[in-house]
Write a protein that binds this DNA or RNA. Structure first.
Lengths: 268, 268
DNA sequence: GTGGTGACTTGATATGCATCAAGAGCCCTC
DNA sequence: GAGGGCTCTTGATGCATATCAAGTCACCAC
């Protein structure tokens, strides 16, 4: 809660956190350097040797910077790259034939975007930056070839796929069986534990998404989300001020959520 | 609807369908033979050469037969194998810390079970046979080694992972945004298109799961599911008799579901 | 056949969350 | 620093679906 609200909304990688990058928005085409990336242990390089990381860096041609609200890819776009989030955050959405959309995922640094596009060679989801963000661009054809030669990399790709499936199962549990209150608590706990894993505070953070996105993700309305946050505040579980959240009673909130925040740590 | 109800409930691979196997329950330890398996084009062997399929068969040691209600694996079991469904059907469930369960998936022949267990080396879900079923046992360590040598196999594994992610996104859309009626219609269309892809009738089939499982999967109650099926019947969209379903107006039902049954064909 | 058990159906009532509506706070522009 | 437009909050009301409660049907054991 000590950070400047404006900067925090714009660039989570800068506020409340050990610095992730040198600075935002100026190295669009600079080479990727996994070695000094703060989220490397959550990302593809996890468990790779120094030499293997060098080979990985050779194929990850460049970074891309996105402003808040910019779209990384759209459903229907041809699939060419995976994107590893270096800083910032994204929302993934699917769109129904009637135009209805559903937020399926909030993605944080270290996570890979675009995995679902492999089959069919076409993106089936949208990815939009929630704040100013940067991603590493990973041409998948080259990544696939390299994985053929480097078992540790293939292993890590399987692991990431598998983690994603696990996370989606948890999301289904949340949407299928839980009350609005439980869902809201579970999201806060989830975000908290993911920030913690990235070296940020587990109890004070800035939500990078508007209430409408939270509501959509949780299968609720923005009004209900707002009421629940107010209720949690009245009950001294959290303190909220706009998008700034401080968790005052992590244990009680975890119990409300019905999880022990262990399932979801690898980022998602 | 012309099939014997008892047999159908017990062994979907026998009723309403081109025969999948020689016969149920007698070849527990026989070698896998992908070449004559009716779902090979939906399964790992898709796009593999004859020689590559031979190598795949070498590592898939055996089949396993399960009676209706038997459990293939439980959350917490160590991860050793993937399972390719040869005949029958399964439900996957996750269980919350408070004991609450959620059905996340109904799996049909050609689909792989256990993918989410790769990371963490432990199953995080339960898989239970909904009817008498058979699976091919795939020791994952060997599969992984083989994929390292056979690009087409690695490709297919990525494809299956990616398809699973896409399917889960669709499921999230269903649970997050849709009315009970839409969910029920979408499930019927989904099952219909999956049966069709496997050479079964798209309009007449036997649901292998009880109403409670359908309700749980859709985030509803069994009573609501029952009421909706009755309503669809009154509206001449379907005819229902117990678990036997005949779709009378596939187009109207698809419109209700808000999908064009294209997204989900690879089985899930 | 007869009785028991579990799956399913149908109806009456309750309730959690959506919807509708109004207003407050914050940020950006000029 | 005043005005406009978002985002967010809060309140009143309504409805979709859950819950509770019988009752029916099908299958299985004896």
């Amino acid at each position: 809660m000590a950070c400047d609200s404006h900067a925090a909304r714009r660039y989570n990688g800068v506020c409340c956190t050990p610095t992730v990058d040198g600075g935002p928005m100026k190295d669009t085409l600079s080479a990727v350097n996994c070695g000094n990336c703060s989220v490397r242990r959550l990302c593809l390089p996890a468990d790779l040797s120094a030499e293997e990381i060098d080979r990985l860096e050779e194929i990850t041609g460049k970074r891309r910077m996105l402003r808040a609200g910019e779209t990384l890819y759209r459903a229907g776009d041809p699939f060419a790259n995976l994107y590893a989030i270096r800083s910032g955050s994204f929302k993934s959405t699917v769109i129904a034939t009637d135009g209805d959309t559903q937020v399926t995922h909030f993605a944080l640094p270290g996570e890979l975007l675009g995995l679902d596009a492999y089959s069919g060679r076409m993106h089936s989801t949208f990815a939009e930056a929630l704040e100013d963000s940067s991603v590493c661009v990973l041409p998948f054809a080259q990544l696939e070839s390299l994985a053929q030669e480097v078992p540790a990399l293939q292993h890590q790709i399987y692991t990431i796929f598998s983690e994603e499936l696990k996370k989606e199962n948890e999301a289904l549990l949340l949407l299928g069986k839980r009350s609005a209150e439980t869902r809201m608590a579970a999201l806060l706990i989830n975000i908290s534990s993911r920030y913690a894993r990235r070296g940020y505070s587990a109890t004070a953070f800035v939500l990078s998404m508007p209430r409408t996105d939270i509501a959509n993700y949780l299968g609720l309305t923005a009004e209900t989300v707002s009421r629940l946050l107010s209720k949690f505040q009245r009950e001294k579980l959290i303190a909220v001020r706009g998008r700034e959240v401080e968790i005052l009673d992590l244990i009680a909130l975890s119990e409300l959520a019905g999880t022990h925040c262990s399932y979801e740590d690898a980022g998602g």
